[in-house]
């Protein structure tokens, strides 16, 4: 049995590369806005988690555990389809739905990152600061927090890269990012192999340098402690 050899036709890929690439605008916009909102919300969740008051701390923990166990895609469907059914007043555009989903999910991830960064600072540091006569607030601000931030930044860098990749799922609610446009082109040119290979390469070229760059940027933080 012989197969006709597959003739690659990369012209389909080159001709449409610009169109597909234009989707990166949405990807970056979504990632950036979500990261900003997710940092703020994540801070609140982290504070709740570490609160002295039991109900608040429990809420923080439940929030984090919930989003750790729920797939992004189901969450997206829920926000896009179930939420408007539940609260008819809400009308969400695909971008808004995606923004909402990624933000609340990111907040859970960030809260854990903040918490682990803080816990990673050795207790002796606070003792030393207090022994010099600093108030607990001063000790936190001048000694503990700077060190916690240094530990958290690399984690946040990873989170950013992960988020950048995760935004690809918005294709299912017809948000015109890279993936959506690629699907569009693949369907019209009947060249899924070339198109999707192109998309993989595009994502790789966008993501990998960010990953490496952030790694290098934060490497010096580890040396300094």
């Amino acid at each position: 049995m012989t197969h006709a050899a597959y003739t690659f036709d990369w012209s389909a890929a080159w001709d449409n590369a610009g169109y597909v690439l234009a989707g990166v605008k949405i990807t970056i916009l979504l990632t950036a806005t979500t990261m900003a909102a997710g940092l703020v919300l994540g801070l609140f969740v982290a504070l709740a988690r570490m609160s002295q008051r039991r109900p608040i701390a429990w809420f923080g923990l439940a929030y984090v555990e919930f989003f750790r166990a729920v797939p992004l895609l189901i969450g997206l469907y829920w926000i896009y389809y179930a939420l408007p059914a539940l609260v008819p007043a809400i009308k969400l555009s695909p971008f808004a739905a995606a923004f909402l989903l990624f933000t609340v999910n990111l907040a859970a991830l960030n809260a854990e990152a903040f918490r682990s960064g803080l816990l990673a600072v050795p207790r002796g540091q606070q003792a030393a600061a207090l022994s010099l006569g600093m108030s607990p607030a001063q000790a936190f601000r001048r000694v503990v927090l700077p060190q916690a931030v240094r530990r958290v930044l690399p984690i946040l860098g990873n989170t950013w890269v992960g988020l950048f990749k995760d935004t690809a799922i918005v294709v299912v609610i017809a948000l015109a990012d890279i993936t959506y446009r690629a699907q569009d082109v693949a369907l019209t040119t009947y060249r899924p192999l070339e198109i999707y290979t192109l998309v993989l390469i595009i994502y790789f070229l966008l993501t990998w340098p960010q990953s490496r760059g952030l790694e290098r940027l934060f490497r010096r933080f580890r040396a300094d402690g």
Partner: peptide, 21 residues
């Protein structure tokens, strides 16, 4: 008022606890 008291007592720790940053 502990911070005020601690200003006048110096402490040296077994594991130094210098501020690494």
């Amino acid at each position: 008022r502990l911070p005020e008291v601690r200003r006048r007592i110096g402490m040296v720790f077994q594991h130094f606890n210098l501020f690494p940053h």
